[in-house]
C-alpha cells in the first residue's frame, strides 16, 4: 500500500490535477476582461493598377494599392493571459458578380503592452486583388481593423477596433502606377 510507486503515483496525480485546475481557472478568468477598445481608421488613397497575374503571366490582373492611417489604443486588451495580439486590416466588399469578399491587406503582431498603442500610416502589405481579376464596376468597399487576442492558455477571441465611416469606392484602373 505504501510503496514508493504508489506514493509517486498519488503525488503526480494530485499535482497534475492541481495544474489542470489552475490552467482552467486562468482560461476562465480571461472572460472577465471585456475591454473593447475603439480606434480610428482612415483610407487616404486608393489606386487600381493593371498588372500581370501571379500564376499566369499572360493574364491581366488588377491590383489595388490602399494607403491608410490607423490610430488605436489597444493596451486594454493586454491582461495576464494575453500572449499576443494579431491585428489585421480587412477590406469587405461584394464584387460585380455578387461574390462577397473579405481580404486582409495588412497585419501586425503585437507582443507587448508597450507596443499596443498603434499609430501607423502606410500601404497594404498583401496583394489586394479581386477573384474576377478586375475591379471594374465593383461597389465601394468597407475597411475595418480587427484583432485576434491570443491567450497563454484558453480560448481565442476576436473583435473589431475600427471601421471606415462610409464605404470607399475603387477608382478606375490605370495602366501603370
Amino acid at each position: 500500500m505504501h510503496s514508493i510507486v504508489s506514493r509517486i503515483n498519488n503525488t503526480s496525480a494530485f499535482l497534475s490535477s492541481c495544474l489542470m485546475a489552475l490552467l482552467a481557472a486562468i482560461a476562465l478568468s480571461s472572460f472577465a476582461f471585456t475591454a473593447q477598445p475603439q480606434g480610428d481608421l482612415a483610407i487616404s488613397s486608393i489606386k487600381v493598377v493593371s498588372s500581370n497575374a501571379r500564376r499566369y503571366p499572360n493574364k491581366k490582373q488588377d491590383m489595388a494599392f490602399v494607403h491608410f492611417n490607423i490610430t488605436a489604443d489597444l493596451t486594454p486588451l493586454f491582461h495576464w493571459n494575453t500572449k499576443q495580439l494579431f491585428l489585421y486590416l480587412e477590406a469587405e466588399y461584394a464584387n460585380a458578380q455578387g461574390v462577397k469578399n473579405e481580404v486582409v491587406i495588412w497585419d501586425r503582431i503585437v507582443r507587448r503592452k508597450e507596443d499596443a498603442f498603434i499609430k501607423f500610416a502606410g500601404k497594404n502589405k498583401y496583394m489586394f486583388r479581386d477573384i474576377s481579376s478586375s475591379f471594374k464596376n465593383v461597389p465601394p468597399a468597407n475597411y475595418s481593423l480587427k484583432y485576434n487576442v491570443m491567450p497563454y492558455v484558453g480560448m481565442l477571441t476576436t473583435g473589431e477596433a475600427a471601421r471606415t465611416s462610409e464605404p470607399v469606392a475603387f477608382p478606375p484602373t490605370q495602366s501603370r502606377l
Binding site: V99, N101, Y126
Partner: peptide, 10 residues
C-alpha cells in the same frame, strides 16, 4: 494557418 482571404462564390 490563418485565413487571409475569403470569397463566397455562388
Amino acid at each position: 494557418h490563418r485565413v487571409l482571404e475569403t470569397h463566397e462564390v455562388k
